[in-house]
């Protein structure tokens, strides 16, 4: 316990970053790594009348764009030079940035009750709840 609490992870900001198109899917894909996203997925997205549709593995998805709250940015962090033991300090870098992403529901129309939409309200409220404000 003691030793594992010591470990710090440095967020290195010196690295080059790229903008990435980001999609949150309504399924768990048991895979991490390269995929032909633009060829198979992005190319088949239909964007009609404010309604985005696409299909994945034969299942119909409906999507909506989500924009980062003001003063916030989307980052993809990646661990670099992963240490051999959990005693050592770790390093992550920003590998890509985004200002918006698309989240997809399985068949149902995206709406304000969706978990991710509700979660996006957190930064705004966090400001009031937990931020250091100078009173008077």
């Amino acid at each position: 316990m003691t030793s594992s609490n010591c470990g710090v992870t440095t967020l290195r900001l010196d690295s080059q970053t790229e903008r990435a198109s980001v999609h949150l899917l309504p399924c768990e894909i048991e895979y991490d790594g390269a995929a032909e996203v633009s060829q198979f997925f992005t190319a088949t997205i239909k964007d009609r009348k404010h309604e985005k549709t696409v299909s994945f593995r034969g299942r119909g998805l409906k999507g909506q764009e989500v924009i980062c709250p003001q003063g916030y940015s989307g980052l993809v962090l990646r661990e670099v030079n992963k240490p051999g033991s959990d005693q050592e300090d770790r390093n992550v870098k920003v590998s890509s940035v985004f200002q918006k992403f698309t989240y997809w529901n399985l068949e149902t129309l995206p709406n304000s009750d969706d978990g991710i939409v509700m979660a996006m309200a957190w930064p705004d409220l966090a400001d009031a709840v937990s931020v250091l404000h100078f009173l008077q």
């Binding site: 894909i29 048991e30 198979f40 997925f41 994945f56 593995r57 034969g58």
Partner: peptide
């Protein structure tokens, strides 16, 4: 990852069986 282009009927057992054995689980 994606299985097949939309030209293929994913709901056919032929396609499902191939996906189950050769594609990553979803």
């Amino acid at each position: 990852v994606f299985g097949y282009p939309q030209f293929v009927r994913f709901s056919w057992s032929t396609a499902q069986t191939l996906l189950d054995s050769k594609a990553v689980p979803v």
